[in-house]
């Protein structure tokens, strides 16, 4: 019997996949819809102190194997967001994503999210396209430590920190979260990126640069989770380019306890969660993983499977390919 239950610290999720922040999660009813699509939880849009329109259009464009966005953290502000949470919270687990300019704002926002019924807060320390927020506060380990400490003393619910891949000191930032008492890290947010129109000889996005997401991001995210797993003791939630069960399995084997899906909601539709769950369950059954935690970190040498088992796995995979062709 295979169980898809995922544990991230003290929290337990019926399904290991969550909707990543920024995807179909600005309104209460959108979040309810996604909970009904096989997601174990929904991470809300990142919410700040005041209503924010975000960047002017164009703020999104497709690119090879992914997409680049510079939404600029549009949200109705923490006060009005209470109404959206009221609609969503009775239907399942909502993780409240928040962004602030420093420890004080983060603490205040987290308190509100806890009041609204969020099961955890996710600190946006990683948005690559908002001046004074996101990765601008999330790439300095000392600032990260201060923010996580402030939030930890403000709330009782678990505190997750979403990290940016746009840093050469990712492990140090992860350690800062852990040392400040953070309950989990979420890795990774989008990669800072730009798309230029040759005809117009200028960047397409109004903000000039944005964040790259989608399939192309997956190997970057898997590497980040793998490296974080080697230094951290707290759980890791993997995110970045997951659209199939294989992608999810990679993240889990790299060391993630659960995972999030974002861009694939566009490319595959909201039903992507059901497809991933089914595929993951079949894989776990075939390869003898009884639970998500049994698969967690399996790609690390200490946790890896014996050569014989690996060989068998590869052969079986090839068998399938041959039959398909």
């Amino acid at each position: 019997m295979v169980s898809l239950i995922a544990k991230v610290g003290a929290l337990s999720f019926d399904k290991p996949g969550m909707v990543a922040s920024g995807i179909m999660d600005e309104t209460g009813q959108s979040m309810v819809r996604m909970l009904g699509c096989g997601a174990g939880a929904v991470v809300s849009k990142s919410v700040g102190m005041k209503p924010n329109e975000g960047h002017a259009n164009p703020c999104f464009t497709e690119t090879e194997g992914g997409m680049v966005n510079a939404m600029g953290l549009p949200n109705p502000g923490i006060e009005l967001f209470e109404e959206e949470m009221k609609v969503a919270v009775p239907h399942g687990k909502i993780i409240g994503s928040i962004y602030g300019s420093g420890p004080e704002e983060f603490g205040a926002l987290a308190g509100k999210m806890e009041d609204y019924g969020a099961c955890a807060v996710e600190l946006n320390l990683s948005c690559p396209h908002a001046k004074g927020y996101g990765m601008e506060v999330g790439t300095d380990p000392r600032m990260v430590r201060d923010i996580v400490s402030a939030v930890k003393s403000a709330v009782d619910i678990p505190v997750w920190a979403k990290l940016t891949p746009n840093s050469h000191i990712l492990a140090d930032i992860g350690m800062a979260v852990q040392e400040a008492g953070g309950d989990a890290v979420v890795a990774v947010n989008t990669l800072k990126a730009m798309v230029i129109s040759p005809e117009f000889a200028r960047p397409v996005l109004s903000n000039r640069f944005g964040g790259l997401s989608g399939k192309v991001l997956k190997p970057v995210g898997v590497r980040a989770v793998y490296d974080l797993r080697t230094v951290l003791d707290i759980p890791i939630v993997g995110v970045g380019g997951i659209s199939t069960w294989r992608d999810a399995a990679e993240y889990i084997m790299a060391g993630a306890s659960a995972f999030q899906v974002g861009s694939a909601v566009l490319t595959e539709g909201p039903c992507v969660f059901e497809c991933i769950n089914e595929g993951l369950e079949a894989f776990m059954h075939d390869y003898g993983y009884g639970s998500v935690s049994a698969m967690e970190g399996a790609a690390h040498e200490r946790g890896g499977r014996s050569n014989r088992e690996c060989d068998r796995g590869v052969l079986r995979h090839q068998d399938v390919r041959v039959r398909m062709e």
Partner: peptide, 18 residues
């Protein structure tokens, strides 16, 4: 009102429909 136009940001929803 639309931002992405492609079904990802959710800002153009009517109830739960994009």
């Amino acid at each position: 009102y639309m931002k992405c136009g492609a079904g990802i940001c959710g800002c153009c929803v009517m109830d739960d429909m994009r």
